[in-house]
Design a protein around this nucleic acid. Structure first.
Length: 888
DNA sequence: ACGATCACG
DNA sequence: ACGTACGTGATCGTG
């Protein structure tokens, strides 16, 4: 049977462009949209086996639609150049695939497709139209189906007459009436004000068409009636604009569109030029000489796989095989592992996969599996063992013996990779295709666990991918000299973090609520005051409304603009304070509103009723520098700088009566690290003599004795020191100190005159990054900087600052991680009951029984200071009290 | 879903 | 001439 596929070229390439991450080949051509398009083409060809194909493009700026309505498609953003340059590539690719393409001056792709589909339909042929544009649904008939792209272009959703009826309750012909009423902002089609999709559908269900609605407005009432009467002509015009013209003068012959499959000798060179290596392999074309080595793992579609669904009766036979298990996979749902359900579990040996349902896992019959999970001598390899540990913990299941975490390895191998999922790794290592979880489960509100058959198969595929990924990662870790970083630091730390999180930190709910009431009173007072000064009520939380009040109504000077309008951030408000009393009140309101919503209400929501504690989730694979991050709640940004906010810390208390909170933080750890890695003698000397570093810097830079450094000089020096750590720029420093760029440049110059070793380090590290494409920390943690050689000044400068900052921030992160692992051993060796609870980048927080307080006060800073030996001493300062506020 | 804002190191 | 300090997460309003 003959089958024609018609593709809306413009629509698909746009969607592909925005759905795909940026991608360029080695000569710098952008190729992401073409890549997405090609992927979709290959999928379509394979799944639909078309006999005929055609891709239509828009041609020319003006179409016949502009004759009646100049604003048609007005207000559209210009096509980004990164996309424009891909059109010729796409056309060349289509030619190499032997797929006909067509464009006609004055007509849009829609009209060409409309015409060809009508002709094919009339001769009784099957047609599939592929587009991202819902308007095209009007073309549907018994012979014509329209496939709309979903989630970018990776998948399509076919619509026939029945699907449109189910989704909208309309016939295909009524789609234009829908558009006529609701309009379309992307095409600048006005529609009728106040009518969106919901209302439009209701009206069409009642009246059937735009004309009928307009003829019978007397059956409607209120604003809706008024709008329909006043905008009747808009509605008619919108309908006309949305109607696809199906009589384009085409003399296109059916035979021209014939498609008989890809020819390797034509398609392969083009794919090579684009460097679509995985696609070449997917088509089992040979890679060719210019793409280099043969790949050991050619990409196929998903491999067949067998999974044994273990039931109660099957547990016994599984028992004997537990010793052979190489990999486990535990599927959990949700973002917060402290509140996750177990969806299912896979145990994989060399050649078998066993699926265990979450019910069986918790059932008495599941005991052998639980014992295995709890057996520290049974090594576990898998993806995100930290999350698994936490999820199992809250189900009362013990997890021990973590030996290799794929996610953690992926993070070390490339901490900036944003798709560190198993599916993403399978594609990185060019393994057989692994469906992304979103596709299997759906995401957000649409998340749904499929039935056991589909679920067990998907999870088995994930475990199988894990089995293949692990040896590849082991090789790569070895090659990058990251074995110690991985096995001796990050893996042990992962377990320590899980223990800290399970322990949690107690929060005094009543005190927090009391604090909330105090804030509430002050907020109410401020709101009233602000309304009075403004002369009206408005939403102070809305930067838009606030901007209108300050700049339009009160006429204050505009200091700064954002993309979307006036800027009203604290920096701007500070400058406006002298002009009007309202500004100070707004600043105070902002501060209190933040405390109330984020720290009082937000924290209260995170207290677990059963423990009275908050259990944060430290993420070990997020920050590009090697730092941890903290979520649900974030306990690394609890206020401290302002006294009002600092009070929040009073509600963090010991979880046992008579215990204390003890906190210790590294003093100037980043500058000490800089002193070490730069080898700058002057900076080192400052730390060897334990001087006040900002005063010392000021004294050296301004050439005065330390006694003569005033507070202003010290403040400037402090800002310069920060700037140095961040990868300094004169502009950044000038912003921070509120001075001119020239003055800032002079400061920096003077600084580098004095600290010449630091200057040399900054120059060298940037050179190193340009040469290697990455920078490293003292423990060989690595961060790639692909933009370090970019021609775009902004991208390149950013990469250069990152090259300067990452070894400093990253080495500091290495050090406190070492301290945590060491501290864990020290606590055990001394048989202490004290517990490590929190890490805040350069600070560790513990809860300590009274009788251990004295020892811990010595032990903690000592341990932190000996975590790593540098050419300058590390210094940690300790303090304790009855809550976190007092431990300062 | 995304930008603006602001909390921390 | 270019136009920015480094690294995070939570909340709110808005499209």
């Amino acid at each position: 049977m003959e089958k024609l596929i018609l593709i809306d070229g413009n629509s698909i390439i746009y969607r592909a462009f925005f759905a795909m991450p940026p991608l360029t080949n080695s000569s710098g051509m952008h190729t992401n949209a073409v890549y997405g398009f090609t992927n979709m083409l290959l999928r379509l060809i394979q799944e639909e086996q078309p006999t005929h194909m055609m891709v239509a493009f828009d041609a020319g700026k003006e179409t016949f639609r502009h004759e009646g309505y100049q604003e048609y498609k007005g207000g559209r953003e210009k096509t980004p150049p990164e996309l424009s340059e891909q059109f010729p590539l796409l056309k060349e690719l289509l030619d190499s695939f032997g797929i006909t393409r067509f464009e006609l001056k004055g007509y849009e792709a829609d009209d060409i497709i409309g015409t060809v589909s009508r002709q094919a339909d009339e001769s009784g042929r099957q047609v599939i139209v592929v587009t991202g544009d819902k308007d095209m649904l009007q073309l549907v008939s018994d012979n014509v189906k329209v496939s709309l792209t979903r989630k970018g272009v990776s998948e399509v959703e076919p619509y026939g007459v029945q699907e449109i009826q189910e989704r909208y309750g309309l016939t295909p012909a009524q789609i234009v009436d829908l558009k006529g009423l609701m309009g379309d902002t992307s095409d600048n089609i006005p529609g009728v004000p106040g009518i969106g999709e919901k209302t439009a559908l209701k009206l069409l269900h009642q009246f059937g068409s735009v004309e009928e609605v307009l003829a019978r407005t007397d059956e409607l009432k209120g604003k809706q009636k008024e709008n329909l009467i006043n905008h009747a002509e808009d509605a008619r015009m919108s309908k006309r604009l949305a109607t696809i013209f199906r009589e384009v003068p085409l003399e296109h012959l059916w035979d021209d569109m014939a498609f008989s499959g890809l020819e390797e000798e034509k398609a392969a060179p083009m794919l090579r030029k684009l460097e679509f290596k995985s696609l070449i392999e997917r088509l089992s074309f040979t890679a060719g000489p210019n793409t280099g080595e043969k790949n050991a793992n050619p990409a196929h579609e998903a491999e067949p796989i067998h999974v044994t669904v273990v039931d109660e009766a099957g547990i016994d036979s599984l028992k004997g095989k537990l010793g052979e298990i190489e990999v486990l996979h535990v599927e959990t749902n949700g973002d917060n592992p402290h509140h996750a359900d177990i969806i299912g579990l896979i145990l994989s040996s060399k050649d078998s996969h066993y699926y265990i349902s979450s019910e069986l896992l918790k059932h008495p019959a599941g005991e052998p599996v639980r014992q295995w999970l709890a057996d520290a001598k049974a090594p576990k390899k898998g993806y995100d063992l930290h999350r698994i540990d936490l999820a199992l913990h809250w189900q009362g299941i013990v997890f021990e013996g973590a030996a290799f975490d794929i996610q953690l390895a992926a993070y070390l191998l490339d901490p900036t990779e944003n798709n560190q999922t198993l599916s993403g790794l399978a594609s990185k290592y060019e393994l057989s295709f692994l469906a992304p979880d979103d596709e299997v489960f759906g995401k957000g509100a649409k998340y749904k666990v499929p039935d056991t058959g589909v679920l067990s198969l998907h999870l088995a595929h994930k475990a199988a991918a894990a089995q293949k990924i692990i040896p590849l990662q082991e090789q790569e870790l070895e090659k990058n000299e990251m074995n110690r970083l991985f096995f001796e630091l990050e893996m042990p730390l992962s377990r320590i973090l899980a223990d800290m999180e399970k322990q949690g930190i107690a929060v005094n709910r009543e005190d927090l609520q009391e604090l909330g009431k105090e804030f509430e009173t002050q907020i109410r007072r401020l709101v009233q005051h602000i309304y009075e000064l403004a002369g009206m009520e408005f939403n102070i939380n809305s930067p838009k409304q606030l901007g209108e009040i300050l700049f339009d109504k009160l006429g204050l000077p505009v200091i700064k603009k954002t993309k979307t309008g006036y800027s009203t951030d604290a920096e701007v408000l500070e400058k406006l304070a002298p002009y009007h009393d309202i500004v100070q009140s707004i600043l105070e309101y902002r501060q209190l509103a933040k405390l109330q919503s984020t720290y009082v209400e937000g924290l209260l929501k995170e207290i677990r009723p059963e423990t009275g504690k908050v259990h944060t989730y430290y993420r070990q694979t997020i920050a590009a520098t090697g730092r941890l991050s903290s979520q649900y709640p974030n306990l690394q940004n609890i206020p401290i700088r302002m006294e009002e906010g600092r009070k929040i810390r009073k509600v963090f208390v010991p979880s046992e009566p008579g215990w204390h909170i003890l906190a210790a933080d590294y003093s100037q750890i980043e500058l000490r690290v800089l002193a070490d890695i730069s080898g700058d003698e002057r900076l080192k000397e400052a730390f060897v003599n334990d001087m006040d570093i900002h005063t010392k810097t000021a004294s050296d830079v301004f050439g005065v004795p330390p006694e003569q450094v005033d507070s202003n000089m010290r403040r400037s020096a402090k800002a310069v020191n920060f700037g140095i750590v961040y990868g300094i720029s004169d502009y950044g420093l000038s912003q921070n100190l509120n001075i001119t760029r020239k003055e800032a440049a002079k400061f920096i110059d003077q600084y580098f005159e004095v600290f010449q070793g630091v200057r040399k380090y900054m120059d060298d590290i940037v050179k190193e990054a340009k040469r290697d494409g990455y920078v490293t920390t003292l423990l060989e943690r690595r961060r790639y900087l692909p933009e370090i050689n970019a021609s775009n000044f902004n991208l390149r400068s950013f990469a250069e600052r990152t090259a300067m900052n990452t070894p400093i921030q990253g080495t500091a992160a290495d050090i406190i991680k070492l301290a945590m692992v060491l501290m864990n051993d020290v606590l055990r060796e001394h048989g202490l009951k004290s517990r490590m609870l929190l890490q805040v980048h350069d600070e560790l927080v513990f809860e300590v029984p009274e009788d251990e307080l004295e020892l811990m006060t010595k032990l903690v800073p000592e341990t932190m200071e000996r975590a790593l030996s540098l050419s300058v001493p590390l210094k940690a300062e300790v303090s304790s009290g009855l809550n976190w506020y007092e431990a300062k």
